[in-house]
């Protein structure tokens, strides 16, 4: 919504520095429960990264694609195999190549977008979800012929030092997510993002201005899948600590879709807000159930409540604030700021 010009204001830099200090110094020093790292911060960052991928294709380029989890699976298994089979390949190298592999697959599954749009495209991209999982299941090579079906992910080793404690893994993810978020913001605010949004808002006009629909759509699919692929590899190596195709089922794709919509289509910060909300909300409900109602409410009811509330929220946001929580946040900030000025 805001002007997409790749110049950054002073407040952008201040926000950035505050977030960096918070992420790299304050959180590792103050949070001393492993639970927070392994169950909240790590999955939050991984899923936020995947949600950025979903934002690129859906929020910015306007292509209704569903199947982020499929590309996450592709990235995860690519990373596993690269580390397994290529000697001396550094972790970050494997991560980048995994992303590139996911991107290549993304281009192939993005091809239907040149012919079909809207809900039909969603159905077509759904194929990617099932196809990727099927291929991984079908061919034992991807799982290194492991009969148990669940493979333990290798330890993350960077420059000979293993990163296995929750805080270490959190920091590794934070570095990757920070870099990739900056890249995403640069693209979204620059000419690349303008081309995406032009295709989203009015494709005929975009084409008449010299924007190639073919190139722009496939580029968006590739970048989106790259983000999902890297997120998937991180998700498997740090959160799941194992690789199993079922972990990347359609439910995860939907979850990412919800994070994208609730956070706010066409926003990068919305990816973080949406992912945070969807991850933390069940935690909050459980907490309320245990500590406020002291177990008076059955656990199954609480988990059912979760679904109901998500459903209602989706509808409410679709109707009243299609731009999601990121917009609410902006509005609140503006209001507070205005009051201060008075």
């Amino acid at each position: 919504m805001s002007t997409a010009i790749s110049t950054y204001s002073k407040s952008d830099y201040i926000n950035f520095i505050v977030l960096m200090v918070l992420g790299f110094l304050v959180i590792p020093m103050t949070v001393n429960s492993d639970y927070w790292f392994t169950s909240i911060l790590i999955p939050w960052l991984c899923l936020a990264l995947a949600t950025i991928g979903q934002q690129v294709i859906m929020g910015y380029t306007g292509q209704l694609a569903l199947g982020a989890a499929g590309f996450m699976a592709a990235g995860a298994f690519a990373c596993f195999n690269l580390i397994l089979r290529v000697d001396g390949l550094p972790f970050f190298g494997a991560l980048i190549i995994s992303g590139l592999i996911a991107a290549a697959i993304g281009i192939v599954f993005g091809l239907p977008s040149l012919r079909i749009r809207g809900i039909y495209l969603m159905v077509a991209t759904l194929a990617s979800q099932f196809f990727i999982i099927w291929v991984i299941d079908k061919f034992g090579w991807f799982k290194n012929y492991d009969s148990s079906g669940i493979i333990t992910a290798q330890d993350i080793v960077i420059f000979g030092r293993p990163y296995t404690t929750p805080v270490d893994m959190y920091l590794v993810i934070l570095v990757v997510v920070t870099v990739m978020t900056i890249l995403a913001i640069n693209m979204a605010r620059g000419s690349t993002g303008r081309n995406w949004m032009a295709v989203r808002d009015m494709d005929v006009a975009a084409e008449s201005m010299g924007v190639s629909l073919l190139k722009t759509k496939l580029q968006a699919f590739a970048i989106s899948s790259f983000f999902c692929g890297v997120a998937g590899a991180l998700f498997a190596f740090t959160y799941l600590k194992s690789l199993e195709p079922v972990a990347f089922d359609i439910k995860l794709s939907f979850k990412i879709l919800f994070m994208c919509i609730l956070g706010g289509l066409g926003t990068i910060n919305g990816a973080f807000i949406g992912a945070g909300f969807i991850l933390l909300f069940p935690v909050l409900l459980n907490y309320l159930g245990n500590n406020v109602f002291h177990g008076a409410i059955d656990a199954t009811i609480i988990s059912a409540m979760e679904q109901v509330v998500f459903g209602v929220l989706m509808i409410v946001f679709m109707i009243y604030e299609p731009l999601g929580m990121a917009r609410l946040w902006e509005n609140t900030k503006q209001r507070l700021f205005k009051k201060k000025n008075k």
């Binding site: 010009i5 693209m187 081309n195 949004m197 989203r200 808002d201």
Partner: peptide
Amino acid sequence: ALFKRMSAIDNILVGRKLHSKANFLDVALQ
């Protein structure tokens, strides 16, 4: 046939597409 959700200046900037040679990597890495 404007890009409705984009600002006026962004709309006009899209018109500069043919004068933009930087690819997405140039833009991403600034």
